[in-house]
Design a protein around this nucleic acid. Sequence first.
DNA 1: GCCTTTAGTTACAACAAGGTAACCAGGAAT
DNA 2: ATTCCTGGTTACCTTGTTGTAACTAAAGGC
Lengths: 119, 119
Amino acid sequence: MRKVHQNPDNCAVVRTMGYIGGKWKPIVLIRILTGVKVRFGKLAVQMPDISRKILAQQLRELEEDGLIIRHSYMEKPPRVEYELSELGKTLIPVLKAMHDWGAQMEDPAKRSTWEPIIP
Amino acid sequence: MRKVHQNPDNCAVVRTMGYIGGKWKPIVLIRILTGVKVRFGKLAVQMPDISRKILAQQLRELEEDGLIIRHSYMEKPPRVEYELSELGKTLIPVLKAMHDWGAQMEDPAKRSTWEPIIP
DNA sequence: GCCTTTAGTTACAACAAGGTAACCAGGAAT
DNA sequence: ATTCCTGGTTACCTTGTTGTAACTAAAGGC
């Protein structure tokens, strides 16, 4: 179990942080929740500040936690696609709340770029 | 600026994480948002898993970020009380979304202990 | 005079997270 | 035969976060 998942208080908020806490997970999830399967390489290009190692690690943890689904096609060169699981979709309100708050903090006048395209 | 506040992507979700990310901040905020001023010592007792040093540090950062207000009375022994700022109150929907999701994950049947008592 | 109380701080140590660079497989294209 | 391509992994190192123990001030009670 990852350190971040230890939750001695058994507190709901701490539990949520165990799933989406960490520097990069929320943004990774936001990139994946477009509803379309996304390839690893495309994610890496969209988020140049995350090293590929960390991206791979975060994706693996999100998969272990059941928030995303990993589709691996047995091709060469390899092709791997990610999409939100049903459980992952239940996180959308949380991510949306986080997004909206952050967007407000940047500039109250700026309209949200949040566009959930969930099938 | 704390490392966690660096946001090269200028992403709203990452920005939010800069404020409430970290292992303890959401639970600290939850304890403070009752609407009543809370003393440092009471917070420390309520959250025995957070060392007093870390609690003090998190409170200082939350204050620097303008999410909470620190009232220090010039008494001996000292008395310090914390309360949510107006900006901090805007975080309530975010914290509530996080709380609800985490509560669901624990046990869908269990009813929420979330009871916002905001003046 | 000595002990208690509160809200911290400081120095130090331990650990977790994140980053870099190098490397891999194996089919397709050149 | 060599190079390119993708989606990783591994070893190693740096950075950031958390924890522990000891200490402080200054008033009040005994």
